[in-house]
Amino acid sequence: MKPKLAVWKFASCDGCQLSLLDCEDELLMVAEALEIAHFPEASRAVVAGPYDISLVEGSITTPHDLERIEAIRAQSTWVISIGACATAGGIQALRNFQAVEDFMRMVYARPEYIQTLSQSTAISEHIKVDFELRGCPINKNQLLELINALLNRRKPHLPSESVCHECKLRGTVCVMVSQGIPCLGPVTHAGCGAICPAYQRGCYGCFGPSDSPHPAALSQAFKSLGVSEAELVRLYRGFNSNAPAFREESLQHE
């Protein structure tokens, strides 16, 4: 029997699960290697659990989400959270810094129709997660590597150093040193391939904090480039604002 794959969605933009469909050269091979048992964005067919691999996209934002994520854990061997929403609460975690009632009144004429939690939180805050894939969006090659590793029972090769390493590998000249462009690369988790500096702009942290980051030192360097306190807060409060290292640093400058 082929291992069963399930794809689940919580609050998100659908981009990370789309990454699987964007594997145009590999999708049919993936479908040979495992049974795509639950993937509503791609199929009407639903095969009942239990599942070997559950990919979870999106953050927990409603009371019902809390029940669903427990049920997913109970019927899955490996739970893998994919993307900044699932691993850190996503852009919608910006509500965590304000009163959600005010947000509802700004967007909806009838807030009483809406059920939502005051915080947008990562999957791992609620259940045991076996692996996290970072990124807004995730890198599809990393997703394939992780699925391949799980199927072959080996450790996935997924670097956890900073984006700076990827710039060096790519041969990109540092945009911060050479052009004075503020760049979150030194404190941001590798995985994107250092795209932004290669396109002449600073990293905006969409893969979240790297292992043991030093954002306080980076903030000092930003200030010497003329970045204001308010701008510092906004820099750390992007797509991973609720990741602890970014959240704590943003609070230092409020």
């Binding site: 609050a11 989400d65 852009i91 919608q92 509500r95 005010d102 700004m106 909806y108 809406i114 939502t116």
Partner: peptide, 21 residues
């Protein structure tokens, strides 16, 4: 689909951030 409140948290952001957000 759970609400994500884009129009709310765009308030106070820099105009250059709008396309990425």
């Amino acid at each position: 689909e759970p609400p994500r409140f884009f129009e709310a948290f765009l308030r106070g952001r820099d105009y250059r951030e709008a396309p990425d957000i």
